[in-house]
C-alpha cells in the first residue's frame, strides 16, 4: 500500500525581499497509513512550515510531495482547496473557530465547500460528529461560551467531519492545561486507533509526544532524528490513573 505522505527533497525558502530564509532543507518524510507521528524541535526550526506543506496550505519551493500517491506539489489553488476539504483535517493551537458562530455551524463549515451535501445531511453529519467528540449537548454554544478543551474538541470535530484520512494538528495542546491536553490526546488516539486515521502533531512537550507512535526531530530546517516511541502512553489509562491519584489525595 502506498504511504499517505511521501516527501522527497522538500525545500521551502521564504523570500522576504532582503533575505532569503531557508526554512526547510532537503526534507524527506514518509508517513504510512495509520501512523501517529509527532514532530518536535526548537522554535523556528520549521515545524509549522512542514505542517503547512503537508496540509497543502502552501507549496514547496522545490521537492516532490506525493499525497496518497498523487503529486500535489504542482496542484492549482482550487485543487489544493479540494484536498484540504476532503482528505485533510486541520487542528490548530488557537482553535481557529469562527466567532459568534455556533459549534454546530463551525463543524458544518467543511461541508459547505464539498459541493454535495444538502442542508439536512449537513446538519445530521455535523451533529453525529459532535457526538463523537462528546459535545452533542453543546451544539448551539458559541466558541466564547466553551472552555479551551471544548473548543479544541469542536475544532477536531470540524477536522474529521468530512471523513479525511489524515489529521494534522499544529500544537493542539499548546493553549490547554495538562489534564485537558491528555483528554485531547485521548481523542486523537481514539481516532488513530478505532478509526485508523493517520495523525501528525507538532508539539514542544516531550510528555505529549509520548502519546504518538513515532517522533521526528527538526533542527534548523532539517529532519535530524527519527525514533519509535518506547513506552507509548495511553491517554485513557493516564486519565484513569490521574483520577485514582486524585481520589487518593482527597481521602
Amino acid at each position: 500500500m502506498k504511504p499517505v505522505i511521501d516527501m522527497k527533497g522538500i525545500n521551502k525558502i521564504y523570500d522576504t525581499g532582503a533575505i532569503q530564509l531557508h526554512a526547510l532543507k532537503d526534507a524527506d518524510l514518509i508517513v504510512e497509513q495509520g501512523e501517529f507521528l509527532a514532530i518536535m524541535g526548537p522554535s523556528g526550526s520549521g515545524k509549522s512550515t512542514l505542517m503547512n506543506l503537508i496540509s497543502c496550505m502552501d507549496r514547496p519551493t522545490s521537492g516532490k510531495y506525493l499525497l496518497n500517491g498523487e503529486d500535489v506539489s504542482k496542484y492549482t489553488l482550487d485543487q489544493l482547496a479540494e484536498v484540504r476539504n476532503k482528505r485533510i483535517g486541520m487542528v490548530f493551537q488557537s482553535f481557529n473557530l469562527l466567532s459568534r458562530t455556533s459549534a454546530l455551524e463551525n463543524v458544518q463549515l467543511p461541508l459547505l465547500y464539498d459541493g454535495t451535501s444538502d442542508f439536512k445531511r449537513r446538519h445530521d453529519v455535523a451533529m453525529e460528529t459532535l457526538e463523537e467528540v462528546g459535545l452533542k449537548d453543546w451544539w448551539h454554544h458559541f466558541p466564547n461560551q466553551l472552555s479551551g478543551g471544548q473548543q479544541q474538541r469542536v475544532a477536531i470535530a470540524r477536522a474529521i467531519v468530512n471523513n479525511p484520512t489524515l489529521i494534522l494538528a499544529d500544537e493542539p495542546t499548546g493553549n490547554l492545561d495538562s489534564k485537558t491536553s491528555i483528554e485531547i490526546m485521548e481523542l486523537l488516539q481514539e481516532l488513530n486507533g478505532d478509526k485508523d486515521k493517520t495523525i501528525i502533531i507538532v508539539t514542544h512537550e516531550t510528555d505529549i509526544a509520548r502519546y504518538a507512535k513515532r517522533i521526528i526531530n527538526l533542527v534548523d530546517g532539517r529532519i535530524i532524528k527519527e525514533e519509535k516511541v518506547k513506552n507509548r502512553l495511553d491517554a485513557k489509562e493516564e486519565l484513569k490513573n490521574g483520577r485514582i491519584k486524585k481520589r487518593k489525595a482527597a481521602s
Binding site: E82, R84, L98, P110, Y113, R158
Partner: peptide, 9 residues
C-alpha cells in the same frame, strides 16, 4: 479558516 477547510478562492 474558510480556506483551511477547503474554500476555493
Amino acid at each position: 479558516i474558510r480556506m483551511a477547510v477547503g474554500a476555493r478562492p
